[in-house]
Design a binder for these strands. Sequence first.
DNA 1: CTAATGCATTAGTCAACGCTAATTTATCGA
DNA 2: TCGATAAATTAGCGTTGACTAATGCATTAG
Lengths: 109, 109
Amino acid sequence: MTQMTTVDAVMRTLADPTRRAVFERIVSSDEITVVDLTRGSGVTQGAISQHLKSLKQAGLVAERPEGRNVFYRAEPKGLAPLVDWMGDYAVFWRERFANLRTLLKEIDP
Amino acid sequence: MTQMTTVDAVMRTLADPTRRAVFERIVSSDEITVVDLTRGSGVTQGAISQHLKSLKQAGLVAERPEGRNVFYRAEPKGLAPLVDWMGDYAVFWRERFANLRTLLKEIDP
DNA sequence: CTAATGCATTAGTCAACGCTAATTTATCGA
DNA sequence: TCGATAAATTAGCGTTGACTAATGCATTAG
């Protein structure tokens, strides 16, 4: 129920190619500002800010203001609902999912 | 690149709550007809057929016509691009973040 | 044969969405 | 202090997308 809403938010947020590209770029970077994200994005700064707002509301990114800059970073927990959803509903591709779980387990210190 | 298009298709297809519910129901069933899917879906039969078309084009379901019925079933490989996409970013996290305990706890309780 | 059932498709409607341009607020440098 | 930069926000616009209602096309039942 509550979780389904979360899955819905994550799915909807990552469905847009531009917004997903922004997210991927944030993940690839350690921390990145809005101007840097705007560079080479193909859209205006305002659009980027809107996408960041969506990503933040979905719990996929977090922000750290510093002076007049705002640094964004990826929020690892944000994708958890997506993993859970796949665990619940995808019955047949257990092998691949098991591999992902194994990979994530290896990271566990 | 080619795969990114696939991820895009899967994400976009599963983003809609109604269509995702249809997919979930197909996964839960072994095989299921359009009328059965329409039952309790809250939308018309035409809408269901449209969603099924999207799901089929995204490679998430397959069909088996039998008489005037058409049985739909889940396509195992359909979610693979999504799993792979997440796997890629799990690797990124592995390199960049030391602590993923929270995520792991949610995934594997 | 005729009526009914299962499904796909189409046109049309309405709301949601992504984008731009412009404005606003806040902060930094000269 | 003043101009420039960073970021968020808003209104407005065009597009996409989900839905209904209606139609068409098979197939089955009576």
